[in-house]
Amino acid sequence: MDSSERIQIASNFLLQSPPGEINDVLNDVRVIISDDESLQEGVLPALREYNLAQFIVADVPGTKHQSIVSTAARAPPSESDSEASKDRFLDPRSKTSFAFDHITLEASDPQTYEPDAESEPLRGALETSTLSYLAAHYLEGVGCVYAVPDSPDMVIQIVANKYNPTNYWSGRWRSEYKVAVQAGTLSGRILANVHYYEQGNVQLASEHNVEITLPTGSRPPADLASKVLALIADEEGKYQTSLNDTYQEMGEKTFKALRRALPLTRQKIDWDKVLGYKLGAELASNKAGFAS
């Protein structure tokens, strides 16, 4: 197997990394490549794709908050930009753009930018409502609102991560919505990823698409933003409830249908004594043989 094939295998592993565990996967695939310089250069496209899709968050230099790294957050390129410019992203909240390293996950080189004056009132109102929604419903959520270039539309992105390696699980909630002002629609998707790996390895990935009609008529930005986030809160609340119901049903019906809850003895097996169980069965069999 040549180096390019190893790089491709490593990239595929990285793209399937569970939430918060990509560094662990990267360390593991080092064994496959055995060349850190080739590894970093070869898997950079996969790391970039993964980070953008997973809404990786970055500590914005000079601020006390985090921002989302995503396709919607890409800074508009300029004629003087180099290849590295595609790794610059916007933090509309602080009106800052920053460079992002997809390997170290660090932000740097903050630069001020001027938002579009026409779209900023609605974008700012949506941001205020989004942050209020996060404070009420997400313990450690990050939310950003982006104006779509050359359009009155807006994109709202939300991500919440929870990593608990001590108890062998991690999870990530992502949601993205497009507010199409002229079309009067709110469309998007909700994605949830959970990984359990205590004495096993189970991943759950779910996706829910959203399509809602917005109220007609002209509204002040603050009123429209409040209505949009109320609709999002309702949709995410219903989806969370449906997930809880699904998990409950899986525990009570699906998994029980796949295997016995207990062996025929109706007692849990003590795996530390499993050899003793086997010897006991053999002795009992031999005893029966002698008796006959």
Rank of each mutant, 00 (worst) to 15 (best):
F89G: 06
F89E: 07
F89A: 06
F89T: 05
L90I: 14
L90T: 08
L90W: 04
L90V: 11
L90K: 11
L90E: 03
D91F: 11
D91Y: 06
D91H: 05
D91A: 10
D91R: 05
P92S: 05
P92N: 02
R93S: 13
S94E: 13
T96L: 15
T96K: 07
S97Y: 01
S97H: 01
S97C: 02
S97A: 11
F98D: 01
F98L: 12
F98M: 05
F98G: 01
F100Y: 13
F100A: 05
F100D: 02
F100C: 07
D101R: 11
D101K: 12
H102A: 12
H102F: 13
H102N: 11
H102E: 04
H102V: 10
H102C: 12
T104C: 06
T104A: 11
T104K: 13
T104I: 05
T104M: 08
T104R: 13
L105Y: 04
L105S: 06
L105A: 10
E106W: 00
A107Y: 04
A107F: 06
A107C: 09
A107M: 06
S108Q: 06
S108Y: 07
S108G: 05
S108A: 14
S108P: 03
D109L: 10
D109C: 00
D109P: 01
D109S: 14
D109Y: 01
D109K: 15
P110C: 09
Q111M: 11
Q111R: 15
Q111E: 06
Q111H: 06
T112E: 09
T112F: 05
T112A: 14
T112Y: 01
T112C: 02
T112R: 09
T112W: 01
Y113G: 12
Y113L: 12
Y113T: 14
E114S: 14
E114P: 00
E114D: 11
P115R: 12
P115Y: 05
D116E: 10
D116H: 07
D116N: 14
D116W: 05
A117R: 06
A117M: 13
A117D: 15
A117N: 11
A117I: 09
E118G: 01
E118S: 04
S119T: 15
S119F: 00
S119R: 09
